[in-house]
């Protein structure tokens, strides 16, 4: 019962990878510069409508990477082996393929970095990636996982802000609406109903990497819960489940 279904794992993994590619390209000028020029796009697809779209420079077509089984998608996106069929969807086929390989590799490398806590830029970059992964992962868990479905069903509708105090660049907004949870692409803190706030990037990094228990930081006020608490309380089982699925 508790074991996640293959489709859930593939949906979570592909959602996180596609989000991280977007985020890393925005963060890393060298990566952006190393990608082929022009507009193109990559679509990751697996059975039962597990589908992710990654646009490079606003492109809409290029390559569709078809994974015949959910397990193939999970394995390949985790750096392992699996069946993958690249299908052209437009003129940018080769560029898209190359860009995906390069950016996915860069994401894996960036997520492997353990920055020194005194290296503020590196720590903030990693924190931003971790936060983005967690928020997207939480959304995918909410939308796809049978195990948390009942437990999360009572999260009130509305907008939840999550991030570092005073740092819009290390923040995100999750929207719960009609049984779906989505991560806003261009988040605005205006009109959020609840906020889960980390006092600084170090705390956020420590909590997201499990170095520091979230409860301990909460007790000391370095993690704050503000506003409509049931919205935030509903996120915690999702975060736990996300951690389980990504192991």
């Amino acid at each position: 019962m508790r074991t996640p279904r293959d489709k859930t794992v593939a949906a979570v993994r592909s959602g996180v990878v596609s989000s991280l590619i977007d985020e890393l390209i925005a963060l890393d000028e060298n990566l952006a510069a190393s990608l082929p020029s022009g507009k193109y796009a990559v679509t990751l697809a697996a059975p039962d409508s597990v589908r992710r779209f990654i646009s490079f420079n606003g492109g809409k077509r290029g390559v569709l990477l078809w994974f015949p089984r959910h397990r193939d998608m999970t394995a390949v996106l985790s750096g392992g082996k699996g069946t993958l069929i690249p299908l052209p969807t437009g003129p940018g086929f080769f560029k898209a393929l190359k860009a995906f390989q390069r950016s996915a590799g860069a994401v894996a490398a960036a997520m492997d970095v353990n920055p020194d806590i005194t290296d503020t830029p590196a720590l903030e970059k990693k924190t931003r990636l971790l936060l983005r992964a967690a928020l997207r992962g939480v959304c995918e868990v909410y939308n796809h996982d049978h195990w948390v479905a009942a437990r999360a069903s009572h999260i009130p509708e509305g907008r939840i802000g999550i991030g570092v105090a005073g740092r819009k660049d290390i923040s995100g907004v999750i929207v719960v609406n009609k049984g779906l949870m989505i991560l806003e692409r261009e988040p605005s803190e205006e009109g959020v109903n609840a906020f889960l706030e980390f006092s600084d990037a170090k705390v956020c990094h420590a909590v997201l990497t499990g170095v520091e228990p979230a409860l301990g930081a909460l007790g000391e006020g370095r993690v704050m819960t503000k506003g409509k608490l049931p919205m935030i309380q509903g996120l915690f089982p999702l975060l736990d489940r996300f951690g389980e699925i990504m192991k």
Partner: peptide, 21 residues
């Protein structure tokens, strides 16, 4: 929190107040 699930559970949990304050 090391020895009690949640540290303080239920309606007396810090999360139900204003954590840190």
């Amino acid at each position: 929190i090391e020895c009690i699930p949640g540290g303080i559970y239920g309606s007396k949990s810090p999360g139900f107040t204003v954590p840190g304050q």
